[in-house]
């Protein structure tokens, strides 16, 4: 009986063809309020962060922990000099829209450039925070015996980020790429050269690291605010 009903239905479908819908899209659009939520948007943006950035950051971490196991107190500066290259991925991502001229398109969308930057840099920043903390914890005690020595990893990182963001605000196009690569190299070299001139990692330099930490934190907060403020409005050349 059921089979018969189904057969009858099939026959009717063949005999009487349904008319083409008129104004279907317009009708559906009235109810089409389905947009991506901020959470869905952030997840999607996560997927747009290049794979090499995750791998590169993880590579810095592993290199740092390997070095930490083999270094002595006098050569701990090598880890400090390595840390700026972790910030390289942060700067590259910050400048990506500018490098490729996508800013103007990204400004005019629902999730504008500011949301885009917050999503991507927020995620990358968190990832880097975890890496820095793990690096600090994985390095054998004796090199970084206390929280004050966390500055050995934080100061180079935030100095690179703040200096990089400060320069990124002022440039566009290909120059942004050179800044993203050049600033980490510069800070790394600065650490290496400064260590040759002064005993930066001795216990007598505690105050220096404390002040340096305070300075770079303030500088980073300032530059981050200015950087995100710039993402709210297209800057005339």
């Amino acid at each position: 009986m059921r089979w018969k009903k189904k057969q009858i239905k099939q026959e009717f479908i063949k005999l009487y063809e349904a008319p083409e819908p008129l104004g279907k899209q317009e009708f559906l659009k009235q109810f089409d309020t389905c947009y991506l939520s901020m959470g869905q948007f952030m997840w999607q943006q996560l997927l747009y962060i290049k794979k090499w950035m995750w791998l590169f950051s993880a590579g810095i971490f592993f290199l740092g922990t390997m070095l930490g196991r083999n270094l002595d107190r006098e050569t701990v500066w090598v880890i400090s000099a390595l840390i700026p290259f972790l910030a390289l991925t942060f700067l590259t991502e910050s400048g990506r829209s500018k490098i490729y001229g996508m800013e103007e398109l990204e400004y005019a969308t629902r999730f504008s450039l500011k949301s885009l930057m917050l999503a991507r840099l927020g995620v990358l920043g968190l990832f880097h925070g975890v890496i820095l903390l793990l690096l600090f914890l994985c390095i054998p005690q004796g090199f970084f015996p206390g929280p004050k020595d966390l500055m050995y990893v934080l100061v180079p990182y935030f100095l690179t980020v703040s200096l990089g963001l400060s320069l990124l605000r002022r440039f566009r196009g290909r120059e942004v790429l050179y800044i993203s690569l050049g600033v980490p190299a510069f800070v790394s070299l600065l650490v290496a050269v400064a260590n040759q001139m002064y005993p930066l990692y001795s216990r007598s330099m505690v105050k220096f690291w404390g002040l340096a930490g305070l300075f770079v934190m303030i500088f980073t907060v300032k530059e981050t605010i200015l950087f995100f403020r710039q993402t709210e409005e297209f800057v005339w050349n």
Partner: peptide
Amino acid sequence: PQDFGYYPDFTGKDFLLYMAALKGLP
């Protein structure tokens, strides 16, 4: 815009899907 760029590793379809995400389309 009068001049606009593109991410070099994007195909045409990738670009449209990327822009659609920014415009909030599911």
